[in-house]
């Protein structure tokens, strides 16, 4: 998802007998759906896993502004431009909420940003794909934010209080993101033959990258067992992916577009759509840094950070001087 392939510090789940008294009390709270709050006792691995997951989620929100920011100046109408600008601003806020949640665990935002810029933390694979034209912007809001919603709605029930509360805020804003994207797609898909072709092309190109957002199959994701026991993850990758496919196919049909891949078929017995696997070797390759835009995204992030340094430092220095003058005047 926005956090993919998060490794728990340990593999396997401790049995109750292996747990210390403190660990047992902690697990009991989680099982009873009592939220864990910042100053409560928690296992070191719970804290470390959460910092990695929330940090990666935060990075994804911020890096995710880049493919869409790319089109703000070229939006087809003033209204679409205002909408896209508002949407991209929301994503900056999402990054803030999540960094704040991570900070309650004792990791500073600057430190997380440093780890990202040094290539020691990741962001979602999806943002390493380009947005080639306006139809892609519609498709991103619809599919990428749509996939994010499926994940984030589940995470509203995550065990860590600040993370869960950040998700509640984010989910309120995300439905605007998905709807504005779908609305832009409607215009294209129900427009001229050329527009329709662009809409179809955007859907086809972004479908598999959107599927990959949920991460590898449950059978491959070796570290999720502990995360599920701790309710850091609430639903499995495959469950979330299926939910996304099931909700999206009727939306494709309403647009009158062709399904993006031939494996999509209603399965009467399962009561769900079947669908094909994305190319998992491509997914792994993008995570390793070899996607179409990895280098661009990281360069843009580092440049923004470096270019902003004099502003951050200048404002802080100004604040210090002002505070010193206020003390002197007393």
């Amino acid at each position: 998802m926005y956090a993919q392939m998060i490794k728990t510090a340990r593999s396997g789940v401790k049995t109750r007998e292996e747990m210390t008294e403190q660990e047992r009390a902690f697990q009991d709270k989680i099982d009873a759906d009592i939220k864990i709050e910042p100053r409560d006792w928690m296992p070191d691995d719970y804290r470390a896993t959460l910092i990695r997951q929330i940090g990666q989620h935060a990075h994804s929100e911020v890096v995710g502004q880049l493919p869409e920011g790319n089109w703000i100046t070229r939006a087809p109408t003033l209204e679409r431009k205002a909408i896209l600008l508002a949407k991209v601003q929301d994503e900056a806020g999402h990054g803030l909420y999540l960094y704040s949640a991570a900070e309650t665990l004792g990791e500073s935002r600057d430190e997380l940003v440093r780890l990202l810029h040094e290539g020691r933390m990741k962001y979602s694979s999806i943002f390493n794909y380009p947005t080639l034209n306006w139809a892609d912007i519609g498709a991103v809001g619809w599919l990428v934010d749509g996939a994010a919603i499926v994940n984030q709605v589940a995470l509203q029930r995550t065990s860590y209080g600040p993370y869960a509360r950040a998700m509640v805020r984010i989910c309120k804003e995300e439905s605007f993101h998905a709807r504005q994207g779908y609305h832009a797609m409607m215009k294209m898909a129900l427009g001229s033959p050329e527009q329709r072709k662009m809409a179809q092309d955007a859907l086809n190109r972004l479908w598999f990258p959107a599927m990959m957002m949920f991460g590898p199959h449950d059978s491959e994701s070796t570290h999720s067992e502990q995360s599920m026991a701790w309710k850091i993850k609430v639903k499995s990758n495959d469950e979330l992916r299926q939910q996304f496919v099931d909700q999206t196919i009727p939306q494709i049909e309403y647009l009158g577009l062709e399904l993006p891949e031939p494996g999509i078929k209603w399965n009467e017995d399962r009561g769900h759509y079947d669908f094909s696997d994305p190319d998992w070797s491509e997914f792994m390759d993008v995570l390793r840094g070899n996607g179409p835009c990895n280098v661009d995204r990281m360069n843009a992030r580092r440049k923004a950070w470096d270019d902003g340094e004099w502003v951050r430092d200048g404002l802080l220095e100004h604040a210090r001087k002002k505070a010193a003058r206020a003390v002197a005047a007393e």
Binding site: Q89, L96, Y97, S100, E103, R109, A166, R169, R312, L315, L316, H318, A319, K322, A323
Partner: peptide, 17 residues
């Protein structure tokens, strides 16, 4: 929620945004 800001004025401006 929370945010980072150099001083109170900026914190209020950022909170508003």
């Amino acid at each position: 929620g929370s945010l980072h800001a150099p001083d109170a004025d900026m914190a209020i401006k950022n909170a508003r945004d």
